[in-house]
Structures are given as structure tokens and as C-alpha cells.
Simulated scan of single mutants.
Amino acid sequence: MQVAVVTGASSGIGQSAALRIAERGIGVILTYGRNQQGAADAEAAIEQAGGTAVALHLGLGDSARFDGFRDRVAEALRTTWSRDTFDHLVNNAGIAQTSLIEDTTEEDFDRLTRVLLKGPYFLTQRLLPLTADGGSVVNVSSSAAAATSGLEAGYAAYAAMRGGLTVLTRYMAKEFSPRGIRVNAVSPGATRTRLADDAFTRFPEVVPALAAKTAFGRVGEPDDVGSLIATLVGDESRWITAQDIEVSGGYQL
């Protein structure tokens, strides 16, 4: 059985990706930060559907703990799947914060850097020895970093980190290709998740304006993105690497 590691899988896009990947008969190690109940719910849903899942805590902004996390992944692989490697890594966990450049503090900037760019970089590095040849990595970026998506004031730091992850995706694809490991990015547009402290729930008035700018007339749902992530780890995507796929329903089209 193949195994995937999906970070930030306690809700939203990560949880959808974990469920859709599990539907393909792939075991899932899913991680959570503060939302332990959401991770437990995802783990239970996968197991009730006949799959196998293990939930592990991961603080993506604390790279000093990545070695310990790698050891826990190795232990889960041995005890649950009798394996010493996994096949797919989905770097999904993230945070969002908006502020104008003139108002952004170094603390805010560094926090975004640790979670959105440094975190995926060094987590992938630490887990690479456990990643099987012929596997895949999917990095979840953002359409906010795309030149064609239109710019919104207040997203400079966030978009810069996401853009860095998109560039990193291409370099990962180059460096990991001798091992047959595919690396791609997905860049969601406005998607109804718990990001930014559940902003869509707290500010429902922004939804109609975002929907009006989207070709399909609505904001995205987690499954719109999670389903694509599951496709990218699948064998039908075996000839795709170094790509960044926008998943926005035609935002600003």
C-alpha cells in the first residue's frame, strides 16, 4: 500500500486532500496544529471508509522539531504499514495574515516566512530520506502570487512567501528528478477554509464580491482543490512535474 503525508489536514483543503487520497487506497499520515479534533474526525472518516490513517501533531513554524516529527513518521510507517518509506508529501499547512507594507512588523513577516516558506523547505528536506523513489510532492501555494490574478493591497508579505514556494517547487522538481520524484504546486484562489482565523465565517460580506470576480460565479470549496491534489499524487499524473496549477474557478478571468 502506498502512503501519503498531508500537512494541515485537520480542516479545509488539507482535510479534503487526505480524504480524496485515501479514497484511492493510499494510507494517510495527516498532521494538525491546533485543531486536534478536526484531525481525529478526518482520521475516523478515512477508517470508516475502509482506509488507514494516523494523525500526528506538527508545528510547521518550528523547524527545530522537524527531526522529532520525522522520527514519529518513521514509527507510524513501521507500526501501521510495515514500511520504512512513504510515497507522497502534500505541503498544505499554512497561515494567512494581511497588512499593508507600511504596517507589517518584522515579527509578522518572520512568522509568515517560517510557516509558508521555511517550513515546507526544511520539512521536505527532513522527510526526503523517508520518501520513496518514484513518489511525489505537492506544494499548496496561492493564486495571490500569480501575475495574472490581480493584486489586492495587504497581501504583499503573504503573496511573496507563496511565490517563493512556487519557485521552490520548480527547483525541487529539478533536484528530485533523478529519483523519479515529481513535484508540483497548486495555487488556490479564494477558497472557503478556516485560513486567517476562519475569515469567511467572520466576514461573510466579502464572499459576493469575490464570487463576482470569478468566472464560475462562486468562491472555491475545499474539495475543488483537494480533488486535484489527489489527482496529482495519482499514477495518471506520472508525466507531470515542475508545474503550478491555478485552481480558482477563473478568478479575474
Rank of each mutant, 00 (worst) to 15 (best):
T104E: 12
D41V: 15
H88P: 09
R34D: 10
Q37E: 15
A45N: 08
D62V: 15
D41P: 08
A96Y: 12
R34F: 03
A45F: 02
A49C: 07
I95G: 11
V73G: 03
G50F: 07
T79D: 09
E43H: 08
G94M: 07
L89M: 08
E47G: 06
H57E: 14
E75W: 03
A74M: 04
L56P: 01
E47N: 12
V73R: 01
A76Q: 01
G51Y: 01
Q36H: 11
L89C: 11
A44T: 11
T80V: 05
F69S: 03
I95T: 15
L56C: 05
N91E: 12
G38H: 02
T104D: 06
R72G: 00
L77Y: 05
L60C: 07
Q37L: 11
A45G: 05
F69L: 04
G50N: 10
A49D: 11
T98P: 04
R34A: 14
A42S: 14
N35S: 14
D103T: 02
N92L: 06
V73W: 02
S99D: 11
Q48N: 15
R70F: 01
V54K: 00
E43A: 05
T98R: 12
W81T: 03
V54Y: 00
A55L: 03
R78H: 06
A76F: 01
G94I: 04
I101F: 15
W81A: 05
V73D: 05
S63I: 14
A39V: 03
A42I: 03
N92A: 07
D87P: 05
T104M: 15
A55W: 00
E43L: 01
L60V: 04
E102Q: 11
E75L: 08
L77M: 03
L89A: 10
N91P: 13
Q36R: 13
Q97K: 10
A40E: 14
A45C: 07
S99N: 14
G61M: 03
R72S: 06
L100T: 08
G51N: 02
H57T: 10
R72Q: 13
E75I: 02
D41H: 10
G59A: 15
A40D: 12
R70I: 01
G61N: 05
G38D: 04
D71I: 00
R78D: 08
G38A: 07
D67M: 02
R78P: 00
R78M: 05
A76E: 00
N92T: 09
L77I: 02
G33V: 08
G50I: 02
G94K: 07
T104Y: 09
N92G: 09
G33T: 07
G61A: 09
R78F: 00
E47L: 01
D62R: 11
Q48G: 08
R65H: 14
A45S: 13
E47P: 07
D84P: 10
G59H: 12
